[in-house]
Design a protein around this nucleic acid. Structure first.
Length: 228
DNA sequence: GCCCAGGTGGGTA
DNA sequence: TACCCACATGGG
């Protein structure tokens, strides 16, 4: 293990997760716009609740840029209720739509073309679109090679003894992107597997995970940290 | 009843 | 920088 390339460790981790859980098929949902809406609705929210809200939007026939944009604020809030923080999320979706219409003519496929690093900067300037939501949109709605970081990703790197300092979102994202090829399929599956693994084994309340498929890599990380 | 969920932004020290 | 807090529904 000594001197092993970080990229190789990350790939070993990826293969172990894929072996253990299989392909996750992210992002669930149809089309880039549904992915974008889901990315906002899933903020600090269980996916099952997001699905209820998406079903409400579909049933109301408003799951389109123009459809959502036309909807009065109260109506949107009502449909979003099952997703939680519905007033906040209605405002965030409105802000995202304002941006989509003002900058991309309301075309939800626009992020698939052009300089995605510019789109990322612009998305981050939209109120309510933070780095995880922006990267989720670019990766899963537009197939762009940006890595999505979340709390599970932090915990995973910590256990592998690979957490960058400072452990900020941007540092962790840059760490993955510096050591993995810029492959959207790889990034998308990797993030999905990290979430799956986190939900199953590496919850906050369960710091140790017996039978964990990553146990050999975690032990290596402990040795690496012990060495300083 | 409590903790958590595929975050973000605002406030304070 | 590093914590705190609000936002809010639904599952375990």
């Amino acid at each position: 293990m000594a001197g092993e390339d970080v990229g190789e460790i990350l790939l070993r981790c990826y293969r172990a997760l894929l072996e253990a859980y299989g392909p996750q098929g992210w992002w669930p949902g149809e089309g880039p716009f549904e992915v974008m809406v889901g990315a906002v609705l899933t903020q600090n929210t269980a996916w099952g609740n997001v699905v209820r809200a998406l079903e409400n939007l579909k049933a109301a026939g408003v799951l389109s840029p123009a459809g959502l944009y036309r909807l009065p604020r109260e109506g949107l809030e009502c449909l979003l209720r099952p997703a939680g923080t519905y007033r906040v999320k209605a405002a965030r979706l409105r802000a995202l739509l304002e941006y989509l219409f003002s900058r991309h003519g309301g075309d939800p496929t626009a992020f698939s073309r052009g300089d995605w690093t510019l789109w990322r900067e612009e998305l981050l300037a939209v109120p309510g679109i933070g780095p995880e939501t922006a990267d989720s949109i670019l990766l899963y709605a537009a197939g762009r090679p940006t890595f999505v970081v979340d709390a599970y990703t932090r915990r995973l790197l910590e256990r592998l003894g690979l957490l960058p300092t400072p452990p900020s979102y941007e540092h962790i994202r840059a760490f993955f992107m510096a050591h993995l090829p810029p492959d959207p399929d790889l990034y998308g599956e990797y993030h999905a597997l990290i979430v799956r693994h986190g939900k199953e084994r590496c919850r906050k309340s369960r710091p140790r995970c017996p039978g964990c498929p990553l146990a050999p890599l975690c032990r290596a990380g402990e040795r690496r940290q012990a060495q300083g």
